[in-house]
Structure formats: C-alpha cells, structure tokens
C-alpha cells in the first residue's frame, strides 16, 4: 500500500526530527503553563474603605470576600493604590468610587459589592444563581479551553505545513510525481501520518490542561479530544494547502501573522458580541471560532455532543474543503 508507505516514512522522519517533535508536543504545554502563571490569580484581595456607611451595610460587606480597611484619607489611599474602591453613603444614596486604572479591578469590585449588598434591595431579597455552576474563579479557567484549541491549531499548522513544504523544496515531491503514485494518495498519506501526531498532541495538551493546570471540564473528555483533533485536522489541511503557495520556510512563516494571529481575535478570548455585523461575518470564516465555541460548550457549560453538532460539522467541512483544494493544487502542479 502506497499510502502506508508514506505514513511510515513520515513517522520515521518525524521521530528523527527531535526539534519538531518538541515543538509539537512541548511548546503548547510551555505556553499553557506561562498563561497559567500569569492568569491563574483569583480575583479576591479587593480592599475597600467605607465612609459614613450604616452599620447594617458594613456587616454585610464584612461577610463578603472583600477586605475592609480603615483609612484617614480615602481619596489619597485610592490614588496610592492601597484600596480599590471607596463606598460612601451621602444624602441617602450609595456612592461607589472605583480605581478604574486596572481593567480587571472594575468588574471584580462591582461584582463583589453587588453580591454583598444585593441580598436585600428595596426590601426584596435578591439571590444570584450561577446557571452553569462552573466554579470558575480565575481568568485562566475562562480562557483555558480556548487556549487548548488555539495551540493545537497553531502548532499543527506550522509543523504540518513546513514538512509538506520541505517535500517540495528538497525535490522529493517532484520525484514522487515520477512514480506511479496518485496525488490523492500523497495527501491522504500526509494527513494520516501527521494526524497520528496530532492525536497524540491533542491528548497531551488536553490531559495536561485539565488534570495538571485545572482547566475546567464539565463535559466529556472524549468530546474535548474530538474537537481538538478536528481543529488539528483543519490546521493540517490548511497548512499543507498554504505551503504550496510558499517557496521556502520563511514564506511559510509569513502566513502566521496573516492566518494564525487574526484567528486569536475570533477565538472567544476577546468578546465580539457588540462588534458590527461585518466583524461577526469575518468570524464565521475562521475555523478557530467554531472550535473554541465547541470547547467552551463542552468544558465550561458541560454540554454534550448534541449541542456542538454544528461546530463539529463546520470544522469537518473546513477540513474537507481544504483537502479538496489541496488535491486540486497538487494535481495542477503535477502537470
């Protein structure tokens, strides 16, 4: 079987190429660890001070997670960064002053104060219920699922694309054209050969993310692996496709800022809910968009396969489309 010959050769080559192996398996872990170090901080430790607040409210605030500090000059302390907010009671109204120089502060302070004071507003008891019961405390836990998908995409794109390119630059692709192998056999061989490494990578990254770094996993692990694998397949077919338009490794690198980086903006790391319609439309043609959505559905919301069928079929569709384009370009190069 010619396809098996190609698969075996790719495995042999790849095992000898320790650097690429490391890039595929350990680089995603390294970056995951780094983001974890930076983003895995609980949004506690908020210090506030109160001015003329009724005793009843102070008791409630003390029961919350915030730290109440007595200061002589509240404004001064806010400027110095000693406290994050001032809560004052003036002419029968609550006045909250927040240090909004730090973006994460603002939201956290508001949430904490609301939670602490919300229980009884205008005599009506307020209860806040977490719909998905995610128990997420840190930014890392929110972005973890997206990062897992993003890195799977990025590194498979890079390694797969460059390997396919090397086949062209070292002349072996042309040499293969002089053998009775069919173009689709070459591409299928490549997809399966690298697919094997993509599967291993998906497992390593997902297991490491979930069990070592504590990325939340409310749904099934097997679904997470399936999604990352589909993302990797999309990356692989896209990488090999684009590599046919690159003359060398450097030109392949040039695709990163054009193809890979923009996907980060549509991966769910940044909210585009309020963006104009055309921005949303761009997101619709970005594979990461679907992968990240599906990962959030499964890992954070704990949904099952029925809820991600659309995303899964979109990823599969992208792979199929890129595969067909691959075939067309390879056949046309052969002529």
């Amino acid at each position: 079987m010619k396809i098996i010959a190609i698969i075996m050769r790719i495995i042999q080559q790849f095992i000898r190429d320790k650097r690429s192996l490391a890039l595929l398996f350990f680089a995603p872990l390294l970056i995951l660890i780094l983001t974890w170090v930076v983003l895995d901080q609980e949004s506690g430790n908020i210090a506030i001070t109160t001015v003329d607040l009724p005793e009843k409210m102070i008791t409630k605030l003390e029961a919350g997670e915030m730290q109440l500090i007595e200061v002589d000059n509240p404004d001064e302390s806010l400027r110095e960064g000693e406290i994050d907010a001032i809560i004052a009671f003036e002419s029968n109204a609550l006045q909250i002053t927040i240090d909004d120089s730090e973006p994460s502060n603002q939201q956290a302070v508001m949430m904490q104060i609301q939670q602490a004071l919300a229980t009884n507003q205008n005599g009506v008891p307020v209860e806040i219920e977490k719909y998905y019961d995610t128990e997420i405390d840190t930014t890392f836990e929110y972005v973890g699922p997206v990062l897992i998908g993003y890195f799977a995409f990025f590194f498979v794109f890079l390694v797969g694309g460059i390997s396919f390119l090397r086949e062209k630059s070292q002349g072996t692709m042309e040499r293969l054209f002089a053998t009775p192998i069919r173009s689709w056999e070459i591409i299928i061989g490549y997809l399966i050969g690298f697919g094997i490494f993509a599967i291993i990578q998906s497992f390593i990254v997902v297991l490491f993310g979930v069990y070592v770094l504590g990325v939340p996993l409310q749904g099934q692990l097997v679904l997470v692996v399936l999604i990352t694998l589909l993302l990797a397949l999309t990356a692989l077919t896209l990488g090999t496709l684009l590599s046919t338009f690159a003359k060398n490794e450097f030109q392949m690198m040039q695709f990163i800022p054009i193809v890979i980086v923009p996907q980060a903006f549509f991966s769910g790391l940044f909210s585009i809910d309020n963006a104009p319609a055309w921005v949303e439309w761009i997101g619709n043609v970005m594979p990461i968009n679907y992968g990240a959505n599906a990962l959030i559905e499964v890992m954070i919301k704990g949904n099952s396969i029925g809820d991600i069928l659309f995303e899964i079929s979109m990823l599969f569709g992208f792979s199929l489309l890129f595969f067909m384009l691959n075939l067309v370009t390879l056949v046309s190069f052969r002529k």
């Binding site: 080559q13 000898r16 070292q170 072996t172 042309e174 040499r175």
Partner: peptide, 14 residues
C-alpha cells in the same frame, strides 16, 4: 520508467 532528477531528491533524515 526509472528516473533520476537533477537535484538529489532524498529524505535527509532517513
């Protein structure tokens, strides 16, 4: 047909 290209088309890692 046996073919030998002008550039050595070999897999260097193998």
């Amino acid at each position: 047909i046996g073919y030998m290209a002008q550039a050595d088309a070999l897999y260097e890692e193998l």
